[in-house]
Design a protein around this nucleic acid. Sequence first.
RNA 1: GGAGACGUCGCAUAGUCCGGCCUAGUGCACCACCCUGCUAAGGUGGAGGCCCCUUUUGGGGCCCGAGAGUUCGAAUCUCUCCGUCUCCGCCA
Length: 420
Amino acid sequence: MIDLQLLRENPEIVRASQRARGESEDLVDEALAADKARREAIGVFEKLRAEQNAFGKTVASAPKDQKAALVAQVQELAASVKVADQAAKDADAELTRVAGSIQNIIIDGVPEGGEDDYRVLREVGTPPEFDFEPLDHVDLGENLKLFDLQRGVKVSGARFYYLTGMGMRLELALMNLALDQALAEGFTPLITPTLVRPEIMAGTGFLGAHADEIYYLPADDLYLTGTSEVALAGMHADEILDISGGPLRYAGWSTCYRREAGSYGKDTKGILRVHQFNKLEMFVYTDPADAEAEHERLVGWQEQMLAKVELPYRVIDTAAGDLGSSAARKFDCEAWVPTQGKYRELTSTSNCTTYQGRRLSTRFRDADGRPQAIATLNGTLATTRWIVAILENHQQADGSVRVPEALRPYLGGIDVIEAP
RNA sequence: GGAGACGUCGCAUAGUCCGGCCUAGUGCACCACCCUGCUAAGGUGGAGGCCCCUUUUGGGGCCCGAGAGUUCGAAUCUCUCCGUCUCCGCCA
């Protein structure tokens, strides 16, 4: 939910944001009208209610024999209160619907446009040059018995897989490397629920345009989360947090489930795009004034991880049209994938400013002690997908894969992955 | 899965049977001030959240788990949902 005060006072800022995203500007005028209508409806209701309350006291203190007459007199008032109450509720629901469909206000400097209009902030490292024909991650993984794709399909269908042997250990090693880094930075580690209630899923902004991306269990009215961000954001719903001692930083580990609807034919091979994977996610609650600085810190931690696994990558500032509805700005770190000859997303970090805080009613007390919507940010620290880039970039002529030094302690000191 | 109990202003509780002096009382904790020669006791006052009107001051509405209903009027009665607890059963 955007800030309604901003909408009233500076609607042109909201319009500009919608325009940059390629979203409807008319929504802004609809929201303004709905806001006005709501306030008028509330005024009418409250005036009537005040009358009724006053009358109620008269009835209560009146002599018994006069009560019947008084009651008869106020019937009509009671009826109009009821009507006004309903009108106010309807107007409020309409405002929530319209204003709720306006996406977060983008931050100045975010490139306008769609998926291909990102800005490259920096490229780090050099793509490897091979004096042999490099294999793709599917061949490498199957040769080295790191995953079993056929049986994944047999048991669960397309885009499912077994991680086997060193593949399974590589994933745990990545997660633990990431976790140890997060712990060193003071994050609180968490394992989060992966099934959540509808209001939590809606509060995080995932039930909008991309609702068909989400697994839903009708028998229990629960959603399977595509990222621990959902449970981490919902964790403090309806709370006023004490961040006087600094931001609350969580590192949440969970399995993630995504339907990948509409991606038929895209990345069908291997484990690049799958229905189920693991992820260690950073999630921060902070003062909105500190959100942009925190966002830079999150990218910094992601880049540290990429450096530890020795991958060449670039950082992009995602264009407005490619942002989720909650994000005001998003940086992606994309690692080089040799056999594709391009960079592919390994991490993503979003600054959601106060958008989720307002939707989920998560607040903090400002310097004056008044509750204000808190800012939230999230960012990937490690996922299953990293295995793809690690295998391809560190493969050797004999078909083995060199293990980056930082990962070796998590793999019992092994420095090369070879066929078992 | 079966049976039952419960959900009140930070915490703990009263109020719910018999709807209206409940604009929810009390204790503890909290804040300010007073008194007090002192990490104590006592006194006075204050204090939450959401929203509407208002330049300030201030005025008003809503919040007793959530929602709906009955009623002139609901913390109190009815229904649905959510949650917690106890006992029984079943199960890794």
